[in-house]
Amino acid sequence: MNIVVDLNRCQGYAQCAFLAPQVFEMHGEEALMYLPVPPEDQLERVRRAAAACPVQAILVGEEAGADVR
């Protein structure tokens, strides 16, 4: 599973950084930095973070084109 955050939409509420701190962290006061390929053992937390995002900016999905590699 990979993630991408729509950072136009993100307003720095930091819910994700609270729910999955190994994957999402605030870089400075407002900028979000994240791991696009989170570790397997973090996926449940990532899903919770995506669901909790107040602006629904986090997309979680299968890696595009994984079948053509």
């Binding site: 599973m1 990979n2 791991l35 696009p36 390929v37 997309l59 999905g61 890696e63 595009a64």
Partner: peptide
């Protein structure tokens, strides 16, 4: 950003499918 900082390998940037 993440890649130049050395926090994410360049190949770990694949886009998720909708």
């Amino acid at each position: 950003k993440q890649v130049l900082l050395g926090r994410v390998p360049a190949e770990d940037t694949g886009l998720p499918l909708r």
